[in-house]
Design a protein around this nucleic acid. Structure first.
Lengths: 229, 229
DNA sequence: GCGCCACTGTCACGTCAATGTCATACTGTC
DNA sequence: GACAGTATGACATTGACGTGACAGTGGCGC
């Protein structure tokens, strides 16, 4: 999973800084805006995964921005956490009605902030249902996260699992090592291309005699998953 | 399940008391709040199985609270019975439109109250939730809230019980720690993901040698309950 | 009200599977 | 046979998971 981006909209620089530091420690990528207008622009431009929005700000208030974002289809899905200095229940109600997903009262600890943020992101990122794939008695079930050959469960490591899943959903097509690294390892990691060979070997080993012919070497290019040949 | 929890929201203490006594006699567990704000908070914190909601209250009215609860996904499923001193038909309409599941006119007898409450709960309790589940001699009975292995009762904590119940009703499926937190702890708690590990361990310990193989680690992903492998 | 106790969430530490890299052996092609 | 490309086994490192300890909390009986 790549780092989630969080946009902080608050007119007070010190508060923004404090939050930014806390979030960066927790491996989030942080954007900042000191008013609702800039905030709105940054939402549109950078599509953050979550908004931290100050309740009271000069000019357009946080609650107004929240309402606006929730009204537009393109930004409606972005979760919002409201920050407020007041602890009155009414604000919470108003905030939630404006479409905020959670709400934190100042002062708050960085720990609490990160915890709530995690929880909101967790809820907001639904996991799509996936169908099992099968070929020649080899079956991969994303739901139970299992691979079986003719009904018997296979011992397979995480990387080999992802590699096999990619192959089974992209059959009959040759991929270069570099393409496999992008697709299976993720775009922004640096590993040697030769490492792919090693995992191909591990995958073949895991598949056993019965199925290793499905993972084919394409000399001079890379690898392919195929039932033919 | 354990005793059902009923939250009474009414500003008049004597009425709350009367209801509370009647419900406790009928083996319900009772929570009380004397205004809509506190009521809202208690719903979020304690997740009662049913709400008894006074129609007229100072501040936010019962009907307003009902509307709000039915709007939020997390609380939408909780059935609500409205209490009102007025017997006008209009109120009934309004109440039902706000999402109330039933409606009782004061004065009412404790007998009537309990009867309606039972009826509403019966309707609201999804089929199957109350049925015991069993696998390989491990049995979980939601009615008596007990777990037994080959007939002998097991020592098991509340959280482990819920975790096991979730697993037994969702077998052969890998869950991430996040998903387990949402499903077993509830969506609005802020807990470290690694805490799941600890409870998994406690659950395994409670299950003993004989059954702990059912709770499987899916490395790099999370956990799974399965009778295979 | 008070102390006791079960339960919970968090941390620190230990362990072991998983990973990426290398050196070496092998294979196909010209 | 020479060369480039690929397979394989070994190895150090990393990081995920298991585990025991501990402090805080709330419920419960006295």
């Amino acid at each position: 999973m790549t780092a989630k981006t969080v946009l902080i909209v608050d007119d007070e620089a010190p508060i923004r800084e404090m939050i930014a530091v806390a979030l960066e420690m927790a491996d989030y990528s942080v954007l900042e805006a000191d008013n609702a207008q800039d905030g709105h622009a940054m939402v549109v431009d950078h599509r953050p995964d979550l908004l931290l929005l100050d309740w009271m700000m000069p000019g357009t208030s946080g609650i107004e921005l929240a309402r606006r974002l929730k009204r537009e289809g393109a930004t409606r899905e972005i979760p919002i956490i409201m920050l407020t200095a007041k602890s009155e229940e009414d604000n919470k109600i108003q905030g939630l009605e404006a479409g905020a997903d959670d709400y934190i009262t100042k002062p708050f600890s960085p720990r609490e902030l990160v915890a709530r943020l995690k929880a909101v992101l967790r809820r907001a990122t639904p996991q799509g249902v996936e169908d099992p794939v099968a070929v020649e008695g080899l079956e991969l079930d994303p739901v139970s996260h299992r691979v079986s050959a003719d009904g018997r469960a296979l011992e397979i490591g995480p990387t080999e699992y992802r590699l096999l899943q990619f192959f089974m959903t992209h059959q009959e097509r040759a991929y270069t090592r570099s393409q496999l690294l992008d697709q299976v390892w993720g775009g922004n990691v640096y590993v040697e291309e030769r490492t792919v060979d090693v995992h191909i070997r591990r995958l073949r080993k895991a598949l056993g005699e019965r199925h290793q012919h499905l993972v084919q070497t394409v000399r001079g290019t890379g690898y392919r998953f195929s039932t033919k040949g």
